[in-house]
Lab assay of single mutants.
Amino acid sequence: MTEYKLVVVGAGGVGKSALTIQLIQNHFVDEYDPTIEDSYRKQVVIDGETCLLDILDTAGQEEYSAMRDQYMRTGEGFLCVFAINNTKSFEDIHHYREQIKRVKDSEDVPMVLVGNKCDLPSRTVDTKQAQDLARSYGIPFIETSAKTRQGVDDAFYTLVREIRKHKEKMSKDGKKKKKKSKTKCVIM
């Protein structure tokens, strides 16, 4: 069974824990209790493949930012979460993405942009803004509501699919490099 290491990042209060708990335990946590770091595991079937999701729910508070490099190193894919009623959390996505790329030393890291709290009427981040940002990053965008469960499975499952595509691409690139290195030079 394939294991996928997913990391949920975003500013404090955007609903990272609520999304994760909704996926794992099928219930909505409405009281806000700032996370330092929590880890969850769940076995699911995605596109006919049974897999184990190892999900790291991270601290959004700035005082825990020193811990970010460590979990970013171990993560295979990242859910970059903002709240649709919090423009600052949307603007912060850029910083999370840049930090992930720096730590992973790669421009090509599996990510999904997630606009959470889409059940709320007080939207300050337009869907088109988020779609445009995701398009500019070359990553999928999904709106979710941890409260109603809308888009929750889709967000995590899409990230797994992005990781699969990335692994497939990397193995193809690896095979191309191996083929090239088999060419021999004969000096007579």
Rank of each mutant, 00 (worst) to 15 (best):
D57V: 00
K184M: 03
I100T: 08
D30I: 06
S39V: 15
N116W: 01
S122Y: 07
M111F: 11
M67Y: 12
A155Y: 15
V114R: 00
V7D: 08
N26R: 13
V81G: 04
C51H: 13
A134D: 04
E31T: 06
Q70K: 03
V186S: 14
V114A: 03
M170H: 11
E3K: 04
R41G: 03
D105A: 06
G10T: 01
G138C: 05
V186A: 11
A66P: 08
D30A: 10
K42V: 10
M72I: 08
L133P: 06
V109H: 02
I93H: 01
Q43M: 13
M67A: 04
Q131L: 06
Q70A: 13
I46M: 12
I142S: 14
V44E: 11
Y4N: 11
R102F: 04
G174W: 01
A83K: 11
A59F: 00
T127D: 10
L6F: 08
D173V: 04
S39F: 02
Y71K: 02
V186T: 06
I24R: 02
V9R: 08
C118L: 07
P34D: 00
V81K: 01
Q43I: 04
L6Q: 03
E168W: 02
D132K: 09
Y157W: 05
K104G: 11
V29M: 11
T127M: 05
T58L: 05
D57N: 00
V125P: 07
F141N: 07
N26H: 13
G10L: 00
F90D: 11
L113M: 13
E49A: 11
K175L: 07
K165L: 10
Q70D: 13
A130G: 05
A18L: 00
R97P: 02
T20W: 00
R41I: 04
K101I: 08
K175S: 04
I142R: 13
S17W: 00
K101N: 06
R97T: 13
G48N: 09
Q22S: 11
Q22W: 07
K182G: 06
S39I: 10
V109L: 06
F28A: 01
R41H: 02
R135S: 09
K175D: 10
L120Y: 15
L79C: 06
R102Y: 04
R149A: 05
C51Q: 13
Q150A: 13
M188C: 09
G174K: 02
K167L: 06
K42F: 06
G115V: 10
L6H: 01
Q43L: 05
G10Y: 02
C51E: 13
Q22K: 12
V103R: 10
D47E: 08
L19W: 03
K128V: 04
K42G: 03
G12M: 12
F78I: 07
T58C: 07
K16Q: 05
I46C: 11
M72K: 03
M188T: 11
E49P: 12
D173G: 13
E98L: 02
R135V: 08
A134F: 03
G138F: 06
I187P: 13
V45W: 05
K169W: 03
F156E: 01
G75V: 12
K180C: 15
L159G: 03
K165S: 06
E107F: 08
C80A: 04
N116L: 15
Y96L: 15
T124G: 10
I46R: 14
D54M: 02
N26I: 02
I84W: 12
K88L: 06
T87A: 13
K177E: 08
I55L: 05
L53W: 03
Y157H: 12
R149V: 06
S181E: 12
V112A: 03
T158A: 12
T87R: 09
V152R: 14
R161C: 12
L53I: 10
G13K: 05
I84R: 09
C51K: 06
R41N: 03
Q43S: 13
R97A: 10
K175C: 10
N85D: 06
D47N: 10
L56D: 15
M188V: 05
I36S: 00
K165Y: 11
I55C: 05
M111P: 03
S122D: 12
I24F: 14
K128N: 06
K128A: 05
P110W: 00
V160W: 05
